[in-house]
Design a protein around this nucleic acid. Structure first.
Lengths: 334, 334
DNA sequence: CCCTACGATTGAAACGTTTCAGCGAGGTGA
DNA sequence: TCACCTCGCTGAAACGTTTCAATCGTAGGG
């Protein structure tokens, strides 16, 4: 059924080795031969067997990205990964774990088995802690947006600590003295942000309310948090763990009759494409996901995990506050 | 570096064949041997080489999904695929083409080369038309949300024709006589919807305005269309090609001072999770993406493409109109 | 005590490539 | 003319599994 190089070679009247050369080192085979072989390939609908190739050559052209689900942030992240990867002739496969540990384990196993060229991990749960070393022995791993406590991995991340500080400072400058933080407590990146916010707020004498969301940080989580705050007492400003939640917050608050930023100021994280286009364009801590993704690919290809002499790098990119219309002066107390 | 079955066998004092049996047919190997072999595997950090396995065994445990980008609809679709796939011990890799033909070609090539267990195609561009037959010879292909004109493929789809009829009828019942359709003209699924809308509207004596969007049917496209309609003359109801655009439409219209559904009624497609939670909960044509995905996996595994005697099936699932708050009576003309 | 049967294990042949040393033919410089 | 080089091509050995037929004990039946 599937024609292999053997059939191609026979029909073209050359050896298998020559067929292989046409594919892998065209310079060494004479022009006419090349043309003839390619012609036969087309005729026979030849598709080279990747497993065999990879088995023999030991190298794969696949990079895998693992994340919790397909949302705007990861879409942009992946775009960065893909762009850089394709410059090197690599292909990017993504998979969503839905925060399911078992699924994550399965995915990582398959990737190791396939000896993929590299794995980009975001939001890795405890799986990574346990099987990290084994994983690393079978494929280069780069952490995106996820710092390894032991610094024994390459990673790229945005400087969320600094971003958070600037965000809080911004709100302080606008006169806000009571703000809320909205995010899950079981997602490492979010905890980093929360910590920095609390720290900075304490320094500046700002009170922080915590609204805990589920780990699924999408629009509905923001809406949920908005209702929560509405019931418990609305602060003058809210920092949401990402833009999607911030948009949910915006929408729900408007429904509840709040004016933004008149009554409540809102800040997000990520600066996804859509942040600028929200009903009220969002003030947000830009994290440039595409850049993080591209840099992660550079680390992968830069020898991470393949060379013994490699020292792991933690790349941290500056994050900046993009001020749009969702933040304004705190309403004067009455 | 990477320990293979050879090393495991040696260290456990058994033959390679036995190691393989431990992995693939545990029933045939004695309990104590099994324990010992597994123990050694753990010690050595053995990970079986998927390429070799696949080369010899001829079967892969990977299903691939191809779509334009990572958005809510495809997230839900993939969830359905994944759920069904994992029941069969299969793993799902996704990739985003960003509507780039070259990228799509590359992806499909790699998938064929890897001899994946199956490919789920959505939004395939002309690539599919050209390389379809070749593709099909090397991997089972199922089309999702995409009808093959020649019916020479398996496919799953929602009955958009019927869904559209019902939507228009619904608006007619509410008294709307001038509506808009918002969507791209170069995406097959969208064209199907547009056609059905035009047809039904004509029957009912409803005038339809077309607003053409770019193929990237996300929130901003809806916002763009809203401004377009605002400038050109707002109809009393708008049907958007999907929920994301409908949400964009909602948001922008509210910003422009319109009341929903007071001034304008809005209908979407898909019924993504978020549709119910939008500022104004969305009336939408539910297409149950997860169900489409799961059914596609069933078709794949049901012998599509593997058996010669297989006849291709076109599975069409009913789509239903979910009426929420974004549609209401047409404003009385004054 | 032999024969059979059965359970556990194994040797070796694939699977479809890549790669490397080598081979013949033709060309070039001395 | 000979030695040597280059060019284009090829034979055959890997790569790490799976699988099937074959082997070896050993226990049970006659």
């Amino acid at each position: 059924m599937a024609a292999g190089m053997r059939e191609v070679a026979e029909k073209a009247g050359v050896s298998i080795a020559t067929v292989s050369n046409v594919l892998n080192r065209p310079q060494v085979v004479a022009e006419p031969t090349q043309v003839r072989v390619r012609e036969v390939m087309r005729e026979l609908g030849f598709v080279r067997n990747g497993s065999a190739r990879q088995l023999r050559a030991g190298t794969s052209e696949v990079i895998c990205v693992v994340f919790p689900g397909f949302s705007a942030y990861f879409d942009e992240l992946t775009r960065g990964v893909e762009e850089r990867a394709s410059e090197h002739g690599l292909v990017v496969f993504a998979c969503a774990t839905n925060d399911d540990t078992t699924k994550e384990e399965t995915y990582l196993r398959v990737m190791m088995e396939q000896r993929v060229r590299g794995i980009l991990l975001t939001r890795a749960s405890n799986v990574f802690q346990s099987s990290g070393p084994k994983l690393r022995r079978h494929a280069p791993v780069v952490l995106v947006d996820l710092e390894s406590p032991a610094h024994d991995h390459c990673s790229t991340a945005a400087d969320d600590g600094h971003g958070s500080e600037v965000a809080v400072q911004h709100l302080h400058d606008l006169g806000h003295r009571r703000i809320a933080w909205v995010g899950p407590t079981d997602v490492p990146q979010m905890v980093t942000r929360a910590d920095a916010i609390h720290r900075t707020a304490a320094d500046l004498g700002i009170e922080v309310l915590d609204v805990v969301t589920p780990p699924k940080t999408l629009v509905p989580a923001g809406q949920f948090a908005a209702r929560e705050l509405h019931d418990e007492g609305m602060p003058s400003a809210v920092i949401c763990g990402n833009d999607l939640m911030a948009v949910g917050m915006e929408m729900e608050l408007k429904s509840l009759g709040y004016s933004i930023p008149g009554d409540v100021s809102i800040v997000g994280y990520d600066d996804i494409e859509f942040a600028a286009a929200a009903t009220v364009p969002l003030t947000t801590v830009a994290r440039h996901p595409a850049r993080l993704g591209a840099a992660a690919v550079d680390l992968l290809l830069g020898g991470c995990g393949t060379r013994d002499d490699h020292t792991h790098q933690q790349l941290v990119f500056p994050s900046e506050l993009i001020v749009r219309s969702s933040t304004g002066p705190a309403p004067s107390p009455r």
